[in-house]
Design a binder for these strands. Structure first.
Lengths: 200, 200
DNA sequence: AGGCAGCTATACCGGTCGGTATAGGCGGGA
DNA sequence: TCCCGCCTATACCGACCGGTATAGCTGCCT
């Protein structure tokens, strides 16, 4: 009677720490960090609350671990690899991001970008969590700068910055229900490439 | 001793209802709606909690009122008027949005976009609050479509959608600390205009 | 003078927040 | 066999959550 949601999809396998992180990833990604309490988290992970606090000093610590995992799984494993596999020409790789986004946005359980959710729910600019998000956005930026440079852009840093704004803008638009956001962003991106003297 | 923050900047003037809405505007805009409880709100407004619940059935109701006020003050009074005053040529008006954003982002107390904050903190797509945000974003879109059409764009709806993504993207980028986001977005926007056969 | 509407203050409700204390179960290594 | 390290379960802490009940004050209308 205590917690009806405790045992649903308990992510049973793995040691407790792994179960905690996996559960945090699912719940924080979907609902943000403010909406999920530590009791809910421990219950869903099938783990005692004390175990959680043995591995992480505070909830903020766990949130930071979640953000690291998000960079590992989303940025590196998903985005980076998919973009490199999708094409050989760097300019096409940049455009490929939006093709990737297009199928992402059309997933019925599309839940937006965890980095942006966490960024916007923290009003203190000095807070460690918000600082960490800035770092993770910077990691994505570095990837974009690299691609822009490989593509031979005149101003790789500028193109990367504009590209990232377009990415974030269409992620939010898709979250607001605009399912074709990625396709329109891709078209806009193509114009930016031309302005940099590139063609896909 | 009960509430040290109760009387700081109590927005003293006006009837209770106006004080509530003004306080909600300040607090929700800066911190989001999840971070601000009704006790804090009533305390800061210098109003009894019962008075608050006499004017609004629930906190969600108050949030909806806050969003309406945000559209009134931010979208209509601020954005719309400023853009119309800034220039006569519609294409220049579109670009003027980012010039307006540039000074907005450089305010030391820049607090981002309340619509986006509220949108991202609500994970249920059916929730009335999230539905309301979609409506407010649509209002901004309408303004953009109008400007794009006046400017003679070949595809006003498309240009408006891309423009809004650029706007949201640079709002978020600025929130992450990128102070020159608006200037770069403006440059990107100029390329989109050229692609539509327009010149500023 | 009476009355009523609007507001205030205070206390309360069950539930959840992040975080801690305590005691016991269970498995592996010596 | 005994112990120790890791985990569990449960209860607790003060604070806060959204929302309600009650009683009293104040000012305006008649």
């Amino acid at each position: 009677m205590t917690m009806p949601s405790s045992r649903s999809v308990p992510s049973r396998s793995g040691d407790p720490r792994e179960r905690i992180e996996r559960t945090a990833y699912e719940l924080f990604s979907r609902h943000g960090t403010r909406a999920i309490g530590v009791d809910t988290l421990a219950g869903r992970a099938g783990v005692a609350k004390m175990t959680l606090y043995k591995h992480y000093r505070s909830k903020d610590d766990l949130v930071l671990a979640f953000l690291r995992r998000r960079e590992e799984l989303w940025t590196r494993t998903w985005l980076q690899n998919a973009v490199r596999d999708r094409s050989r020409k760097p300019a096409a790789r940049l455009l490929g991001i939006f093709e990737l986004f297009d199928s992402w946005f059309r997933k019925p359980d599309y839940e937006g970008c965890a980095f942006l959710k966490v960024l916007l729910e923290q009003s203190d600019p000095q807070h460690p969590v918000r600082t960490a998000v800035r770092g993770h956005l910077q990691a994505i930026r570095s990837l974009l700068v690299e691609l822009a440079a490989e593509a031979g852009a005149r101003h790789p840093a500028r193109l990367a910055q504009q590209w990232q704004m377009l990415m974030m803008g269409c992620i939010v638009a898709a979250y607001a229900g605009e399912r074709n956001a990625a396709r329109e962003a891709r078209k806009a991106g193509a114009f930016l490439l031309r302005a940099e003297g590139l063609r896909a």
